[in-house]
């Protein structure tokens, strides 16, 4: 089991390095001089050059890249903001928990709604519930999250005056943002659960279970669901990644001081170190989430965990010959 985890971790490393490289490369390719943009047209060429020197922007590309990576790996230093000279790392760390908790709550809500609906939809295919839920998920997936957020604000904040429209100071501030993100995710999870269950229910081993005289509810719960949940977990991992991206939108609309809002503000001011650091951080978190999902697979699906035990047994067997 441990070998499995280590192997997956090892496979993740080059991807993470690749992400750093691509994000770094793309941003450094800006045709306009970022420092000029930051300092404005009023600044003299000297001031621009000075700051460029200070930021190490006159070094060759790979030197910059190497220094950047070195700083991240050794000191956890993502550089400093062009705008306010504050270290990017501390900005990210202070705001990430907000974004993370928003994303977690949303995915939990989404799973709590999506998985049971998917199961019921599958077991009662073509029923009113199934059709209703399918319709709902089609509409949810089509609605842009920023639009949904604004609609919720219009209805619940401005007209009904029930919920606050901005800020993040207490539980009532969480309701609308979580619903905004959660709805789309719930729809995705519901669809995956439904199609996965439909496929599993058609399998022969479900018929075997019924032929044993097993109760239908247990057939669904123990035999069908256990097998069907596997692709659903993958989707949940991907959805989580989508949400990290979607956090950008929701935090902007609801004025939530999270990582997403930091990124959006930075893109407006062309504060490249902040953009770089923020995107990288999110991408790394996403990679870890996927790693976690892979590991979870190993626990849930016995075919994967035994694969490694068998390999080990074969090795031992071969060594003993």
């Amino acid at each position: 089991m441990l070998t499995y985890i280590l192997r997956r971790l090892l496979m993740m490393l080059p991807v993470v390095v690749g992400v750093v490289f691509i994000v770094f490369a793309i941003l450094q390719l800006t045709p306009t001089d970022p420092i000029r943009t930051v300092l404005g047209d009023m600044a003299t060429q000297e001031e621009v050059d000075m700051m460029r020197e200070e930021m190490g922007l006159n070094d060759p590309f790979f030197t910059q890249f190497y220094n950047y990576v070195k700083n991240i790996v050794t000191k956890g230093d993502f550089g400093v903001s062009y705008i306010n000279r504050k270290p990017v790392t501390s900005e990210i760390i202070s705001r990430f928990p907000t974004t993370l908790s928003l994303a977690l709550m949303s995915i939990l809500l989404a799973a709590a709604i999506g998985i049971p609906s998917g199961i019921i939809s599958a077991t009662r295919q073509y029923s009113l519930f199934d059709n209703g839920v399918t319709l709902f998920s089609l509409i949810s997936l089509a609605m842009p999250s920023f639009w949904l957020g604004l609609m919720l604000i219009i209805i619940f904040s401005l007209n009904l005056r029930l919920l606050p429209a901005s800020g993040f100071y207490g539980p009532q501030y969480w309701i609308m943002p979580v619903i905004t993100i959660g709805t789309g995710c719930a729809a995705g999870i519901m669809r995956t659960t439904r199609s996965s269950m439909l496929e599993v229910i058609r399998q022969d081993y479900i018929r075997t279970a019924r032929a044993k005289g097993q109760k239908e509810s247990i057939v669904i719960r123990r035999h069908a669901l256990g097998n069907a949940i596997i692709p659903v977990i993958t989707i949940m991992g991907l959805q989580f990644g989508r949400q990290l991206g979607g956090a950008v939108l929701v935090e902007t609309i609801f004025a939530i001081p999270g990582l997403g809002k930091l990124l959006v503000d930075a893109t407006a001011t062309k504060d490249i170190p902040v953009i770089q650091g923020g995107v990288l951080f999110m991408a790394i978190v996403f990679s870890f989430i996927n790693l976690f999902v892979d590991i979870l697979y190993g626990f849930i699906d016995p075919r994967i965990s035994t694969m490694y035990r068998m390999k080990k047994a074969k090795k031992v067997g071969a060594a003993n010959e």
Binding site: I22, I26, L27, L263, K270, I275, V279, A283
Partner: peptide, 18 residues
């Protein structure tokens, strides 16, 4: 894989910023 490791929106933002 590297491209997919970056959430879609963020990748688009990075490219658009540049």
């Amino acid at each position: 894989d590297v491209l997919m490791a970056i959430p879609n929106v963020l990748l688009a933002i990075v490219i658009a910023t540049t």
